[in-house]
């Protein structure tokens, strides 16, 4: 682990009883959902992680506990280090507190997660879909959502596909 990260990880561990693991010189901190706002506030104010580089999630379906990991990727410009904070959440309609108060960039990123994974963010001021059209059913990036593959139309199956393929009126 990077020497500059050691005191930070230790501090977060003591204050929030977090666990961590390491992979390819990257540190992944595991934090409970209720604590995420406090953890990020601490990291931003005390340890100068000014930039929330990325906010995403990962689906572990069919596993239910935890079903998702919400991943916060932080960067510090002043110290030139980065840190990953992961929040495991259970069930099909999980709730995580919003971190807009800490990083404003979370606004759109959380809307994206709501749209793509159906993870709700408590206290989000504008919980609308962002990428898919309003009224879409399901959340596309979940593992139980089908890819939506359509059979391509070739000469040998031209008529067969043509029967079901929608066509516009002139």
């Amino acid at each position: 682990m990077d020497k500059r990260l050691e005191p930070i990880v230790k501090d977060v561990q003591e204050k929030f009883s977090a666990t961590f693991d390491e992979f390819r010189d990257e540190v992944h901190l595991m934090v409970a959902a209720e604590q995420i706002v406090d953890v990020l506030t601490l990291l931003r104010d005390e340890y100068k992680f000014e930039l929330l580089s990325s906010l995403t999630a990962s689906d572990y379906w069919p596993q239910e506990t935890p079903r998702f990991h919400v991943v916060y990727q932080l960067s510090s410009i002043e110290k030139n280090i980065c840190l990953q904070v992961r929040v495991p959440v259970n069930g099909t309609s999980p709730k995580v507190p919003t971190v807009i108060g800490v990083y404003k960039v979370a606004n759109w990123r959380e809307r994206e997660l709501l749209d793509m994974f159906g993870i709700e963010f408590d206290g989000h001021p504008d919980p609308r879909r962002i990428l898919m059209p309003e009224g879409t059913e399901g959340h596309p990036l979940r593992k139980d959502f089908p890819l939506g593959y359509e059979e391509p139309q070739f000469t040998f199956n031209f008529e067969e596909i043509g029967l079901t393929k929608p066509s516009p009126k002139e």
């Binding site: 898919m132 596309p140 959502f145 089908p146 890819l147 939506g148 593959y149 359509e150 391509p152 139309q153």
Partner: peptide, 9 residues
């Protein structure tokens, strides 16, 4: 024809 993107979107 959809190109490389044969998906839901």
């Amino acid at each position: 024809c959809g190109g490389v993107f044969n998906n839901y979107a």
